[in-house]
Amino acid sequence: MPKKGGSSAGLPVRMLHDRLLVSLEGEPGERRSGGGILIPATASVGKRLAWGAVVATGPNARQVESGDRVLFDPDDRAEVEIQGKEYLLLRERDLHAIAAERVEDGPSGLYL
């Protein structure tokens, strides 16, 4: 498991503070619905969030680790190219959710 503030991809970059380097999942453009219907890139309904994989984290990232799958708003991002590949630069507070398999027993965080 990569250490905090590390890079799992062996990239020549060290993230600072609470910054995250994220690889965007899928290609922008056409996508398929759960029922198999092809949705063209020109069809946009409201604001759509995007999923990505965390490649590297800064030392002050508290809840995100390299390898986590995260949900974020694609409008609140900065793009960077490293070794010929496109990545996104986000702050940890810009994330909406983390889809991690490491969910522990205990409180769910819901106030019911």
Rank of each mutant, 00 (worst) to 15 (best):
R48P: 01
K3W: 04
D94F: 07
E25M: 11
P2A: 13
L112G: 12
A9I: 04
V45E: 12
A43Q: 14
S44L: 15
V64Q: 11
E101D: 13
R19N: 08
V45W: 03
A100Q: 06
G106A: 11
G36Y: 12
E86L: 07
A53S: 12
D73R: 03
L11Q: 10
D105E: 12
W51E: 08
G109L: 10
I98W: 07
Y111C: 00
R19S: 03
L21E: 00
S108M: 11
E79W: 04
G106K: 13
E27P: 00
I39P: 00
E25R: 14
R62I: 09
A50P: 00
E25I: 02
V70D: 05
T42Q: 12
E65L: 08
D75F: 09
L110P: 01
E30P: 01
R91L: 04
G58R: 00
E101Q: 12
V70Q: 04
D73I: 03
F72C: 03
G34D: 07
S7M: 04
R69W: 03
M1T: 11
E86F: 09
E101T: 10
R102T: 14
Q63N: 13
R93C: 03
N60F: 02
L71K: 13
P2M: 11
S108L: 15
S7C: 15
Y111P: 02
P28L: 12
S108K: 11
G10C: 09
W51K: 13
I39F: 10
V103A: 08
A78F: 12
L71H: 02
G46Q: 15
S8I: 14
A43K: 09
D68P: 00
A41I: 01
A56V: 06
G84E: 11
R31H: 08
V45K: 05
L89V: 15
K47D: 08
G46E: 14
G10L: 07
I98R: 10
P74N: 07
G84D: 11
V13D: 02
E101V: 06
V55S: 02
F72V: 02
K85N: 06
S44E: 14
K3Y: 09
P28F: 06
I98C: 03
G26Y: 09
E104P: 01
P2T: 11
R91G: 04
D73A: 12
R102Y: 04
L11G: 02
L112W: 08
L71A: 06
L110V: 14
F72P: 00
H96G: 05
L112E: 06
A53M: 15
